[in-house]
């Protein structure tokens, strides 16, 4: 509700400023010297708020598991604080990089069942769910013409290394349709080299449109609003198209309360990121330092 109120006050302010400008042009009275200062002052205050909002906006996409479950029955500020402290402690031990659904990761875990006690899996992240220490992600790959998916806990202490081989986003939030897509869209070689993006570039969005195999499918992909699939229409029958129209819920996008219930309000998010931002920045700096150290390799001197 607060963001709605803030938007309306901003709108009112903007319209007032606009009207004043117009009036100045049309009126015969001399311009007052106070007005430009007022305008500048308001602009500066909005600018400061925008800057902080932008920082918040970044963090909630990079570290989505730091935000707690929005269900008010389970929320408790002390428990969330302790959970975040534990998460930061784990992050100080291992670098959990920024990745999104659609990025290709290589995960090495210490496996008591494997012969060498370590296990490396490369795959595309199809799902990322959970809040706090329960955060999980699923990787999918096609190995020897067999599709394999593995789920991992983000804060599992047996994970030795998470490496992002290709950092990118996709058009959808969950990529479960890859299970019914042609296998070439889910195959990634295990010895893939990491593609390093130059610093400061925004995360690229891969606009690939995946082709699905003919029916039967695991889910009704035509009823979900998927943007990353190209050829759903050619596999549908009349009956499916009719049923899809009946099942549509066009009123959902106007349901403000539903969206509010799913999200954490901006005031709480401010507090969370204030608490956690400094340490996360420090960890990022430490990671950059190690990356720079690694790239510089001293040439080996030849013995006479």
């Amino acid at each position: 509700m607060s963001f709605a109120i803030r938007r309306t006050t901003e709108l009112i302010g903007a319209t007032k400023w606009f009207l004043r400008r117009e009036c100045r042009v049309l009126s015969t009275l001399p311009e007052k010297t106070e007005e430009p200062e007022k305008v500048v002052a308001r602009k500066r205050s909005t600018g400061r708020r925008l800057f902080k909002n932008e920082a918040i906006l970044e963090s909630r996409h990079i570290y989505p598991e730091f935000l707690p479950d929005p269900n008010p029955k389970w929320r408790n500020s002390l428990r969330e604080k302790l959970e975040r402290a534990d998460m930061l402690q784990r992050r100080s031990q291992i670098d959990i990089p920024e990745f999104y659904v659609g990025s290709i990761l290589a995960v090495t875990i210490s496996d008591p069942h494997a012969q060498s006690k370590t296990n490396r899996f490369v795959g595309i992240c199809i799902e990322r769910k959970g809040c706090g220490l329960r955060a999980e992600f699923t990787l999918r790959n096609v190995v020897d013409h067999q599709g394999v998916e593995v789920r991992y806990d983000l804060y599992d202490p047996t994970i030795q290394n998470i490496q992002v081989l290709r950092l990118e986003k996709r058009l959808d939030e969950k990529l479960f349709y890859l299970r019914d897509a042609l296998p070439e869209y889910s195959t990634f070689p295990f010895d893939m080299d990491p593609e390093i993006l130059p610093e400061g570039t925004p995360v690229p969005i891969n606009p690939v449109q995946v082709k699905l195999k003919p029916r039967p499918w695991l889910e009704r992909w035509e009823r979900q609003d998927l943007k990353g699939v190209s050829n759903i229409e050619e596999h549908l029958k009349e009956k499916d198209r009719v049923r899809r129209e009946l099942r549509k819920t066009p009123w959902e996008k106007y349901d403000l309360m539903k969206q509010y219930r799913k999200t954490i309000p901006i005031e709480d998010q401010n507090d969370i990121w204030d608490e956690v931002h400094n340490q996360l920045q420090q960890l990022q700096m430490a990671k950059k330092k190690t990356v720079r150290k690694r790239t510089f390799v001293t040439p080996k001197t030849q013995l006479a």
Binding site: Q146, G147, E149, V150, R151, Y152, D153, D156, T158
Partner: peptide, 8 residues
């Protein structure tokens, strides 16, 4: 978690 799931 950590146990792979196959497509068949």
């Amino acid at each position: 978690v950590r146990v792979p799931k196959f497509d068949s």
